[in-house]
């Protein structure tokens, strides 16, 4: 009887999972492997080998990697600074960091469009000081810049959390055993914060790989990512089978990269020396 009641509580969640996660995945699989008339085919999935699509996929991977790398390089020192701050000011800085995340995603992208456009605020300011104009709107650089801005908190927070969990005793013990600051950083702090780095990488790399809104608005149609192609397949060409086929390929890439990153995590600890 009690069990039944408990299961009842799980009901809404089950409906959610089935309706909004499982069903769409099944539908994507169905469309990916059928033609518009409903017969089985692998041609949708194999379309990825077409040079335009394949190049878009590679380019998406490249941009996502660059974005993740920049986020990591910026986030790690930032997280360390945060972690070394006094408790009171720590909360405030974390708050400042999360603040932009409360704004709508699209609004933030549009704001960057305004800032970066050829007659935009940044160029006005640069012009005021007699500096050369910045022409990065409609280039991959603008896309990466905006993605880094959007995703940076997702890298900082998990790393900061992992660093905050490192016991001060452990660092003192390393010092006590003769380790200098560099040794402590590479042998203790980095390995012990790896779990945060891994979550950060996943949380930045996956949305960066699949994003299309940023490249749409800041790429000016010149930056074609795999996400844009999938979006076009669904919304412009109404070719759901092609869109689903490419989505399937992208899902495979996401899964593979996550598995690769995660396997580094489990090894990470053992190979310190």
């Amino acid at each position: 009887m009690r069990n039944l009641k408990r299961q009842l509580f799980a009901g809404p969640y089950m409906i959610w999972i089935v309706g909004f996660i499982l069903l769409p995945v099944v539908m994507i699989l169905y469309y990916a492997f059928t033609t518009s008339s409903g017969s089985f085919t692998v041609s949708n999935v194999l379309t990825i080998t077409h040079p335009i699509f394949f190049r878009a996929l590679l380019f998406s991977l490249k941009l996502a990697l660059v974005c993740t790398l920049i986020c990591l390089v910026l986030a790690y020192p930032l997280a360390m600074i945060l972690n070394n701050m006094k408790n009171g000011s720590q909360g405030f800085i974390v708050f400042i960091f999360i603040l932009p995340m409360w704004m709508n995603f699209m609004l933030r992208i549009l704001a960057w469009k305004m800032l970066l456009s050829n007659n935009g605020i940044i160029n006005t300011i640069l012009g005021f000081f007699g500096l050369p104009d910045l022409h990065i709107i409609n280039t991959p650089a603008a896309v990466v810049l905006c993605m880094v801005y959007d995703f940076l908190p997702f890298m900082v927070l998990p790393i900061y959390n992992a660093l905050a969990r490192i016991n001060r005793d452990v660092i003192e013990a390393a010092k006590d055993l003769g380790a200098g600051n560099i040794t402590i950083f590479f042998k203790i702090i980095v390995p012990l914060s790896m779990s945060g780095v891994i979550s950060g990488i996943i949380m930045v790399f996956v949305p960066a790989l699949t994003s299309f809104a940023v490249s749409d608005l800041l790429g000016g149609g010149k930056v074609l990512l795999i996400g844009n192609i999938i979006e076009q397949a669904f919304t412009q060409d109404y070719n759901w089978n092609l869109g689903a086929g490419l989505s399937f390929v992208l899902m495979i890439f996401v899964l593979v990269s996550m598995t690769l990153v995660n396997s580094r995590d489990t090894e990470g600890g053992a190979n310190v020396w």
Binding site: N167, D169, V170, E172, A173, A174, K175, D176, L177, G178, A179, G180, I188, P191, L192, G268, G269, A270, V272
Partner: peptide, 22 residues
């Protein structure tokens, strides 16, 4: 002198072993 330059070692109250090492 910094701790790493002193000829003494400490056993900490909560052990402070390195959790990522054997």
């Amino acid at each position: 002198l910094a701790p790493n330059e002193r000829q003494l070692n400490t056993v900490f109250q909560r052990y402070a072993l390195f959790p990522h090492m054997t």
